[in-house]
Design a protein around this nucleic acid. Structure first.
Lengths: 208, 208
DNA sequence: CCCTATATAGTACAAAAGTACTAGATATAA
DNA sequence: TTATATCTAGTACTTTTGTACTATATAGGG
């Protein structure tokens, strides 16, 4: 690598940025910039262009889901984006990778694992966490699986429940009927073992 | 302070624990233990007793709200508990302090601020963040306020919405009628500017 | 080919949620 | 004292949610 690497850390928590910044010193010649919200990320990408790497928190002002990741990835095609998230459920990982991320790091990971992942991405490789493979075929294929997993459509609708959308709003957004949305929501509830949207939201927040 | 201080860091994110651990070195002689969930916290408190300080994350397996904080505080009355949270809304701060916490640190705070807060608590003082005072009378008094803030009852019910409870479950838990719960829920929605419980949950997650 | 799962859409119904009122008790601020 | 806000509880009503079915089309596995 010629010269110092430019890395942008985007997280709203100072201590996390500090810890990550310290971790990155192990890479040698690195120049680290920080952003606390989407506005600051975009400002950095516009004015100071050309970052080699963007470490992007998935729970910060302006970036709360894969859509936010997609926006950032599209506005910085030359920068490798690694998503860092506390929620490492398979559907989240898949959504982020589909959105254009080059890697996904769980916040529960040890520092060494994070560093290895970052080095892999800097080397041009995609990094996918092992958890992602544990559930094997469930999320790894874009085709529907036979297993009793949450289908892509259900995952999509799950995200919209989390975003506070009503059945009607979901139907309009996806170009479906109310009836179809209800069918998907009920199927999702059955798989999650819940019987209300608020419980489905809690499932996404806590365990998964 | 005689000898080394015993400090327990409870957070499910490794990097955060590392960053905090590093930060604590500035205090001099400290012995740091770590816990990743409630089970590990309780194990530490039982077997290794007598911690001077417990830095407790408010979003980790087993500890998601003030009730969790209360349980921990009660099981370790000799240990000063400082809650660390990404959500520093007034009602969260108040709930934690009421639960018995000696301090409340926002994850968005700079390291220096965190360190100062920790030192204050170790000195026997309660630390309350300045944000808590910005909204002045709203949360600082246990009496109801005239301001258009979220009342204690509404905060309590808000938390139960977040936990996925139905109106009926809330009514039973609080010994109220369905009608009264609905009244509180509607009043909360009006203040939050939403019209569904899923949106109310999202409000708690994102901005506030 | 058969079985299964998904995605779609419909009907029908029960339950829950949400709104809009009234109303009494209580506490606080002006 | 008056006004305001909370907490409680009630009635009445609409809308939304959730479940239980049927049904068609598609795609994959055995």
């Amino acid at each position: 690598m010629i010269g110092a690497m430019n890395i942008l850390i985007a997280d709203d928590h100072a201590l996390f940025r500090d810890g990550m910044s310290l971790l990155l010193q192990a890479l040698g010649q690195v120049h680290v910039a920080e952003a606390r919200n989407r506005r600051e990320i975009e400002a950095h990408l516009k004015h100071q262009d050309l970052f080699d790497l963007l470490l992007l928190d998935l729970d910060m002002p302006g970036i709360t889901n894969a859509d936010g990741v997609k926006r950032i990835c599209e506005s910085a095609p030359q920068t490798a984006v690694v998503v860092i998230s506390g929620n490492d459920a398979g559907y989240v990982v898949k959504a982020c990778l589909d959105a254009g991320a080059m890697g996904f790091i769980s916040k529960s990971s040890a520092g060494k694992v994070m560093l290895a992942a970052i080095q892999m991405v800097l080397a041009g490789e995609r990094y996918v966490p092992s958890i992602y493979f544990d559930n094997s075929s469930e999320y790894s294929s874009d085709a529907a699986s036979t297993a009793s997993s949450i289908s892509p459509r259900q995952q999509q609708i799950w995200q919209m429940l989390i975003d506070g959308k009503s059945n009607k709003e979901i139907a309009i957004a996806l170009g479906l009927t109310d009836s179809t949305v209800k069918q998907h929501v009920s199927a999702l509830f059955r798989k999650l073992g819940v019987n209300s949207r608020t419980q489905a939201i809690q499932k996404a927040r806590t365990n998964s």
